[in-house]
């Protein structure tokens, strides 16, 4: 493994960033995984015994409260690794619910990856009750995975939309008249936002260009904040166009994995010394 890749994946993770991600993602997940008792299983997994399992066990208040308790323990830094892994295990069955699959998958993946790190030593109840605060939470690669997952989301969406049918605006026109969660009608070939009418082809092309920017921009340190602002504006605009469950919030919440320092200051100092 090259030294740069070694450092990219195995440098010590920043303990404060990991703690902030742990708390923030747990809060967003609690929001995105509610309500627990609505929605049908995805078509792929509609075996009768599974439908019964969901109705009688998983989509019940008891199961959901247990899941939230594990998530709360993870957020509070009470043995965050086992609590986080338990939360991920309990959250997993909620992922394949139609209508919310992608936002829940994103957050489930992030909670699972983050629970691999020992982040219960900073900004955690354990440290308040006397356990020492330590900086060695683990390597950076779980955070790199969260970053990679976010970029993959934008990239595959941009690629899927790079088709003549989408870029012409025809798909958006049809969706606006057919899909119940579209908030605007664009059958006349124009998309109107904040009083400005834009031809649908231009709106579609802009959407695709923005998704490519969001897939790539976060990987360039100088472009991180501009990319995050672009993403926040993009998702805020989308909420005026379409209701897509918690996907906007889940996506923007994961920007923190890029915006917070990933490596610990100790690693940055060591890296600078090594490069001299």
């Amino acid at each position: 493994m090259s030294p740069r890749l070694e450092e990219f994946l195995f440098a010590p993770a920043n303990a404060r960033s990991v703690a902030a991600l742990r708390i923030g993602l747990a809060a967003v997940a609690a929001f995105a995984f509610y309500p627990y008792d609505t929605g049908a299983l995805a078509t792929l997994v509609q075996a009768p015994w599974l439908v019964h399992l969901y109705r009688d066990v998983i989509q019940t208040k008891t199961y959901w409260l247990l899941t939230m308790a594990a998530l709360a323990a993870f957020a509070a830094g009470l043995w965050s690794r086992p609590a986080g892994l338990l939360a991920a295990l309990l959250l997993a069955p909620y992922v394949p619910i139609q209508g919310v699959m992608i936002s829940r998958y994103l957050l489930w993946f992030a909670v699972t990856a983050l629970s691999l790190l020992c982040s219960d030593r900073r900004w955690a109840l354990r440290s308040l009750i006397g356990f020492p605060q330590r900086n060695d939470v683990g390597p950076t690669w779980p955070i790199r995975l969260i970053q990679l997952q976010l970029s993959t989301l934008y990239l595959v969406n941009a690629i899927a939309k790079s088709s003549p049918g989408y870029l012409s605006g025809g798909a958006l026109a049809a969706m606006s008249t057919r899909l119940p969660n579209f908030l605007v009608q664009c059958a006349d070939g124009l998309f109107t936002l904040a009083g400005i009418s834009i031809p649908l082809g231009i709106a579609a092309a802009a959407t695709v260009a923005i998704e490519y920017c969001l897939a790539i921009g976060f990987w360039f340190p100088r472009l991180r904040w501009p990319t995050a602002v672009l993403g926040a504006v993009f998702h805020a605009g989308l909420t005026r166009l379409i209701t897509i469950a918690a996907l906007d919030i889940a996506s923007v919440a994961l920007y923190a994995a890029f915006l917070l320092p990933v490596r610990s200051p100790r690693a940055r100092v060591a890296s600078n010394v090594a490069s001299r």
Partner: peptide
């Protein structure tokens, strides 16, 4: 190190495996 790399690759495989299901609102048959 070997265990970490295997775990990392397993997570990366999940990312790649799920990727085809991530596109939303990209096509429609009316």
């Amino acid at each position: 190190r070997r265990g970490d790399i295997l775990l990392l690759l397993a997570f990366a495989a999940i990312i790649v495996g799920v990727a085809p299901w991530l596109p939303v609102y990209y096509s429609i048959t009316a």
